[in-house]
Design a protein around this nucleic acid. Structure first.
Lengths: 328, 328
DNA sequence: CTGTTAGCGCATTCAC
DNA sequence: GTGAATGCGCTAACAG
């Protein structure tokens, strides 16, 4: 692999000059500039990132820690974040915490070792010691969609209350009274906020306040199926079910069909936070809050770069829209 | 951030001793070992990756270039690859080519700059100059699922012919004669192989050889919907449709419903290469080849590490299984 | 077993 | 505007 020294030799200039041409801001003569560029092209020169990072004390790499890349919300977010980062000259390292705190911590260690310039974090749980020490070391951090107690960083997140409001309006318009709610872990701000907004708004939307209709899973299909089963076990018979995120709604539909059979399940309307490809094919079609992962990813990266460059960055709430599939 | 020098000072040993304890293979006295470890823990020492990489001329980082992380096949693959890599002491940098050659090339450049130790590649198209020069520089590479002409690297891929065989058996068992096939780009080996296997086997499985029933999209929903529309425009009326990958099947179902209406579409059986969460909810349920992305990712990483460590690595075909949802 | 030293590739400082 | 020299943090080679 060619080094900058090789380039300089071939161009007949000193190493410093080559460096200035290739990455420096300082002026260089048109002549040496042309010769260095030519030499670099001929040698197929690509600067050694680690060496550059060592010298400059920055890597132009951002770390993105999400809970599960297999969740379409996060894969869309990751995709958008990566695109935005690349556009701005940064590279993203993606890590999956698997909704597991220990693994999240391990990745934070790896990120620290790689000397990332900043961290995009969708936290799994409370503030870990490693995260605390990362913050203490001055690492720029932005939060994606989930808040964490004790961490004062800009947050880019869905407007959960607004999204739940759209669902409540839709439920009311459909004349539902007995509505089951399957939420996520209340330890996550997303889970807590969606539940809180639902509880706060149900009465004014003509929805039963019977708490037998409320249960929570783990924001994954398995936990949600178990939650809807528990609700049905209490003897209540909802006419509609609200799943608080994409995987939850998947589990809800599975659970309803297993428990009640396909026929009876098809008489229950399902509505979801997070809009998935297949909702249009369900029986009946599933209406949903469109949760704009791409915007969150894009704004998160922009905010993080702002932080890295020393600017003030404010949190942002991203509005949702609603996809009504009731009468299509 | 503490350096190894700080650790050595605090432990009262020389820099070299600290290095040996922290990452060296050579023996050190239990005493210095304990003191260095204690000092490192107290200082919250995390080795500077770039400096280490510079000196060792390796980064312990693998690059993974996929075509679209939003495709569940790849997000599952990426997840498995990342987990396996971490288990073996490597970090993965994930890049999305967006099914775009120029972007793929740009990422190869970034990978080269980061001095990754090896590359997991799911190629987009033909051999680009940059890929050629990467290979020429001795970069270890394994191919995931897609072959590329002129590149002789170990390939870890689905057994496409075997998977298509399972579909053909299932179609025959269902008594289908008029079957539409919606494939992907034949420039991709995946697309070409699935089509070839289908064409080769259809006659012996009692399926019409009318080529009006065959068309191809881009392995994305949009292209597939257009392809099934073209097929219907030719006046043929299939009783079953075979979608050659997950997004394709999504597009097929959309296209059928748009074109024929929900009622008529529900009388057409759909079968898919790649098994998606929602197939059980479709009307009628969609049977599918389970394409084991996780195994491909895991074996790919294992193979790549083998290459990096100088071992011989053989290509592997991963068998598929079939999820029959016809009579559930 | 341990201390000392060189140098990985680069950006940058200091002379000129 | 350019050349020479320095050192980022670390590992490995060498000498003891």
């Amino acid at each position: 692999m060619a080094t900058i020294k090789d380039v300089a030799e071939r161009a007949g200039v000193a190493l410093g000059t080559a460096s200035r041409v290739l990455s420096g801001s300082t002026q260089t003569s048109p002549d040496s500039r042309a010769r260095v560029l030519a030499a670099a092209a001929e040698l197929n020169y690509i600067a050694n990132g680690p060496a550059r990072a060592l010298r400059r004390a920055r890597t132009d790499v951002l770390g993105l820690l999400v809970s599960d890349i297999r969740n379409p919300f996060f894969s869309e977010l990751a995709h958008a974040a990566e695109t935005e980062a690349m556009r701005r000259g940064y590279t993203v390292i993606l890590a999956n915490a698997n909704e597991d705190e220990a693994q999240a911590d391990e990745y934070l260690r790896i990120f620290a070792g790689q000397r990332i310039d900043g961290l995009l974090l969708s936290p799994q749980g409370p503030l870990s010691p490693r995260l605390t020490s990362l913050l203490a070391s001055g690492m720029p951090v932005v939060l994606l969609n989930r808040r964490v107690a004790g961490l004062d960083a800009p947050l880019f997140s869905t407007d959960n209350a607004q999204g739940v409001g759209l669902v409540l309006d839709w439920l009311q318009a459909g004349g539902h009274r007995d509505v089951a709610f399957v939420g996520g872990p209340t330890a996550m701000s997303t889970g807590a906020e969606r539940l809180a907004a639902y509880l706060a708004g149900r009465e004014s939307h003509g929805i039963s306040t019977d708490d037998a209709l409320i249960d929570s899973g783990d924001f994954l299909a398995g936990g949600a199926a178990a939650a809807i089963a528990r609700i049905l076990d209490r003897g209540v018979r909802p006419t509609a079910v609200f799943g608080a995120n994409g995987p939850t709604t998947l589990g809800v539909v599975r659970g309803l069909r297993e428990r009640l059979g396909v026929e009876a399940a098809s008489r229950i309307e399902v509505v979801s936070f997070d809009n998935l490809d297949w909702f249009e094919f369900a029986t009946p079609p599933i209406s949903a809050v469109r949760n704009d992962a791409a915007t969150i990813g894009r704004l998160g990266v922009a905010g993080l770069i702002g932080l890295i460059e020393g600017r003030d960055v404010a949190s942002e709430r991203i509005e949702t829209t609603f996809v009504d599939r009731r009468n299509v």
